[in-house]
Nucleic acid binder design. Structure first.
Lengths: 328, 328
DNA sequence: CTGTTAGCGCTTTCAG
DNA sequence: CTGAAAGCGCTAACAG
């Protein structure tokens, strides 16, 4: 079932069929009618592979993401897919678990698939992967991670978010902090930590201890107690993201420590569950869905208009005060 | 940059290059060496479009899913992607929000993209979409929805899960129920409701009222209070899924009704947040990740081995008792 | 063991 | 306004 069959059935040439499908040239009403009818009769649908081969376009973009099962990334994927679909482009996703080898493989796959562009949410150590993208001149936009002058990116204002959080905690009389951050090599993680540190530096009455590890529930769960063991109990445990905060909360609760009565705990991301956790989490809201949308839009700009203009968009965040913190 | 360039650089014919890439025939060590070197020097990677056009394969499968941003589906997508990736196949996802029109469009896109297969999580009313899949002879497996004799499927044992829940509640002296279920036309929803009804029928001392709507937090939140207004307060509100349960919990809490002291609330799905909700939710655990994996495996069987054998796999579920229910 | 060649289904000159 | 034909990059006969 191909364009030839349609042409035959309609009694025209294949070029005519192509022309009515794509509207690339005028075709007399009469022939157009016949062709359209033949297409319906045969249930024909054009082969995007062949078209792509010819046009050097695949009408698909790849999204490289740490883990779709993580609610944080899921929303971003959804935003991107929706925006792309509007433009008639489909989304291929690959999960990397932030592993460098997987990221490289993912990019190679994208290259072979000849995707029209790539949306990349990387580990922050994706140098080889990035080089491959560069070498193959694939339009790409980076989300909330690396900041590489050669690419467009959209990032969330991690620094400002965490700074706001510190301001709030300070204003509610928290002075003694433990900071539990994400991986050292991840951009967002660095920014959040930098904000905490800078704020602390500006206030001589603040005491703070920083630990970094993974952006995960499990890591926090396993490490907060040992850490707490060797520090004096803080006023607040400030966490690099909500998952870490959840781990901290659960570990502390199990230990009989009350939140927020004994210690305040804060997160970052405001994933869906944050509002419903026990206790509801004070955190920084970030527009994940928007992140995906904006990324897709930027990429579309590069693809459709071949826009060479690099854009770095910064999405604003906002503080959400709930019940995991209290005035001291 | 194509196979011809490589051939030229290596001083061999394109077929030789093709042969070393695909290992489809013996090539002398000498030439193989040269070709491999040329590939590296040029940074060549084969064009899957062209290969696909020739082979009539795209090495990609489509996954049609209501909403990746929904944690329930996200895990399934992840499971499928992982399994598929192992087999060198990539995953194209499309969100439909369970809208029939979107489902049909999604299938059409898949047809045009000539995906090697489709994993479908539909609304339950996807007849036209299904017909299109049939007509185009696309290998497909259905997940947790429709049960159509023409396709393989993997479903979660919804009936057994909800039945277990009712048994548990009955054994803990709940007699008066309100059931808040998902959409009438969704298979999983029907099964869950059927279990509730059957159980109730077998026990003359049970009183129950059933309401159905959407599998969503919002719907539950908006509807539970009006419903409660016209019924006498039940021992338990049994919900079609966790999202509904969350909505119910939040609505009741806001109204000052205590859970589980005043009324027990149960969910279904055991999404990540269920364990951390306030209160932690008694629910039925289902293996979402496994669902995706199994679906992918079945599909791979159909694609790779052209297996015509239809398989219907039923994944077991288990009851998870937490703190949103109490013995009465 | 290696090279030549014919398509896969489509778009797009180039003629008419 | 319409058709014939070339060619996108690749694989797989077929011939040597």
């Amino acid at each position: 079932m191909n364009i030839k069959d349609v042409a035959q059935k309609a009694g025209v040439s294949i070029s005519t069929v192509s022309r009515v499908i794509n509207g690339t040239a005028f075709v007399s009403e009469e022939l157009k009618e016949k062709v359209l009818q033949a297409i319906i009769d045969l249930g024909y649908s054009p082969d995007y592979l062949a078209r792509g081969l010819r046009l050097k376009k695949t009408f698909s973009v790849g999204m490289i993401v740490p883990d779709v099962a993580n609610p944080f990334f899921a929303a971003t994927v959804r935003g991107a897919e929706e925006e792309l679909r509007k433009a008639g482009i489909s989304l291929i996703i690959i999960n990397t678990d932030q592993e460098i080898k997987e990221e490289i493989d993912a990019v190679k796959t994208m290259v072979s698939k000849r995707v029209d562009g790539v949306i990349f949410m990387g580990s922050g150590q994706e140098t080889e992967a990035v080089e491959t993208i560069c070498k193959n001149k694939i339009p790409a936009v980076f989300l909330d991670r690396i900041d590489d002058k050669r690419f467009s990116s959209v990032v969330i204002n991690n620094y400002a978010g965490m700074f706001k959080m510190m301001e709030y905690l300070y204003s509610t009389n928290h002075r003694n902090f433990i900071y539990l951050g994400g991986p050292e090599h991840v951009k967002s993680s660095q920014e959040r930590k930098r904000a905490v540190l800078n704020f602390a530096n500006d206030h001589s009455d603040i005491a703070i201890k920083c630990y970094t590890g993974e952006y995960s529930y499990k890591w926090a769960m396993e490490n907060i107690l040992p850490i707490l063991g060797k520090e004096k109990t803080p006023d607040a445990v400030v966490c690099g993201n909500d998952l870490i905060a959840f781990g901290v909360i659960d570990a502390l609760k199990k230990k009989g420590i009350k939140i927020p009565e004994d210690v305040s705990v804060t997160g970052f991301d405001d994933i869906f569950y944050a509002a419903h956790y026990n206790p509801p989490l004070t955190t920084v809201h970030q527009p994940n869905y928007e992140l995906g949308r904006e990324g897709a839009r930027l990429l579309l700009g590069h693809i459709e208009y071949g826009s060479e203009k690099l854009v770095s968009k910064i999405l604003p965040v906002s503080l959400v005060v709930r019940d995991s913190t209290r005035v001291r």
